[in-house]
Amino acid sequence: MSQINGGLRKKNSGGEKMEEVVLEVNGLRKNYGELSVLNGLDFKVKKGEIFGFLGPNGAGKTTTLECLVGLREPDAGEIRIMGFDPQQNPRKLKDLVGIQLQVSALPETIKVEEAINFFSFYHGNGKKENIMENLHLEELKKARYQALSTGQKMRLSLTLAMLHNPSLLILDEPTAGLDVASRRALHGLIRELRERGTTIILSTHDMAEAEALSDRLAILVKGRIRMTGTPREITSTGKGWTKILVKTLGSSLEGKKFPGLLEKEENDGYRVFFTSQVRDGLNMILKVVEAAGDEFVDLRVERPTLEEKFVELTEQAQNVS
């Protein structure tokens, strides 16, 4: 696993860098019969950060989160959430941790308002009047669970996870099934919660969402964490190739080979190069175009997206196996 230091840091009085770890996982393993789902996960989540958890289907994301919240018992390894073991201290943790599960439901006939009061009382908070405003549930408060759409159910599930102002919020695919407006509202809410000091673990398939929201990310493939770091750190690791797209009026670049530039097939009249030496690559291209008296129509430099990095890591893992 690659470990890149990054994310939030605090300075103590001596000027040393200090981190407050909210969640620590060491050597986490879980098997379902013969199938090994988690193969020794190690990661830490620091206070106040949004920690993205990315992985393809079957990577073990949901199993990891279920182990974190005590729904599944690990076969080996150690989990500490704010110092507590989820298997040993479930009651303590239910007040510190908010969870939105990917697979969960409520009784069909429960009304939105009833569900909120029901769980509020179990968290010892009493009736909640204003919580429904966060995700626009006011107009649905008399609606029964069975009458809600997928997105509305998700909004309710998220609202329930945040009822007791948890210090750590675990969200498993929170935007699945949400419309654009609700997704934006949720992203805003997640950022707002982070500003208020809530630590968030966000499991998602959505690369753009993970890149936009996460302070740090872990990429999980086949039960192993392949990489952790900030989105920028992750996208600039490995080959670290940057994409250069060039379109000229003339044919000055036709047939030219540039050392250190890997050319991919043309796309919409653009010539596409990949390089780890962006400055040198651009200089070579500029010189050739200038020398030929040609003109640029467009010149773009794009760093690799998280999605490209994700695909690269996933493919590597597949090839290894």
Partner: peptide, 20 residues
């Protein structure tokens, strides 16, 4: 029946994480 349905649909899981 409601007990079996609640468990099958994941309602018990939801209850558990909320401390029911």
């Amino acid at each position: 029946t409601p007990l079996v349905e609640a468990r099958e649909k994941g309602i018990f899981r939801n209850y558990r994480v909320h401390g029911v």
